[in-house]
Amino acid sequence: AADRFDSGEDAGAHANMAKLLASRAAVAAVEAALQTHGGYGFDRDYDIVTLWPMIRLLEIAPINNEMLLNYVGEHVLGLPKSY
């Protein structure tokens, strides 16, 4: 997405897909860490649980994942506008 943008090309689809993938990967990583550590994930010494709200926010801000999917559906897949 950055390379397309730097080249003056339309980077909208690539940027939206990158944000979608990154937010889902980050949430999966934090949830896996919490699951692996069990109750210790909530311990101050490990401090994993404090990452969860910040990472979860990536799925809803600045644009929520559903709107990213709407963009990809409309502009990449050629589907009709769904909202």
Rank of each mutant, 00 (worst) to 15 (best):
G78S: 04
R4W: 12
D47H: 05
G39W: 10
V49K: 03
A18P: 03
A1C: 09
D3Q: 09
A1P: 14
Y83N: 06
E59W: 00
T36L: 05
F5W: 06
I60S: 14
G73L: 12
F5M: 11
Y71W: 12
Y46C: 08
V76K: 08
A15P: 11
A26N: 02
Y83L: 07
N70F: 14
I63Q: 13
P62S: 03
L77S: 05
E31I: 00
R56H: 00
M17Q: 14
S23T: 01
L34E: 13
D10S: 13
A11T: 07
T36H: 13
D10F: 08
K19G: 05
A32F: 06
A22P: 04
T36W: 10
G38T: 05
I63K: 13
A13K: 14
A32N: 00
D43H: 12
N65A: 10
R44G: 10
S82R: 13
E31C: 01
S23P: 06
G78F: 01
G39K: 15
A25F: 01
E74Y: 06
A1E: 08
A29T: 06
M17Y: 00
P62T: 12
R44I: 15
A26P: 00
R4K: 15
D43Q: 07
A11C: 03
E31Q: 13
L20F: 06
Y46K: 11
Y46M: 05
L21N: 01
P53D: 03
A32S: 14
N64A: 05
D6E: 10
E9W: 10
G41V: 05
L34M: 13
I60L: 11
L58Q: 07
Y71F: 11
V72P: 04
I48R: 09
G12S: 15
A2H: 07
L51Q: 12
V30L: 00
A11Y: 02
H14E: 15
D3H: 07
L51D: 09
I60T: 08
E9K: 05
A29C: 12
F5L: 12
L20N: 03
M17N: 10
L69V: 12
N64K: 09
Y46P: 13
V27L: 04
A18H: 00
Y46G: 04
R4P: 03
L20A: 02
Y83P: 10
E74R: 07
G38L: 04
A2K: 05
S7P: 03
R44A: 15
L68N: 15
Y40F: 15
V49A: 11
R4C: 07
E66N: 04
F42Q: 13
M67K: 14
E66A: 07
M54S: 15
E59H: 06
L51Y: 09
A11W: 03
I63S: 15
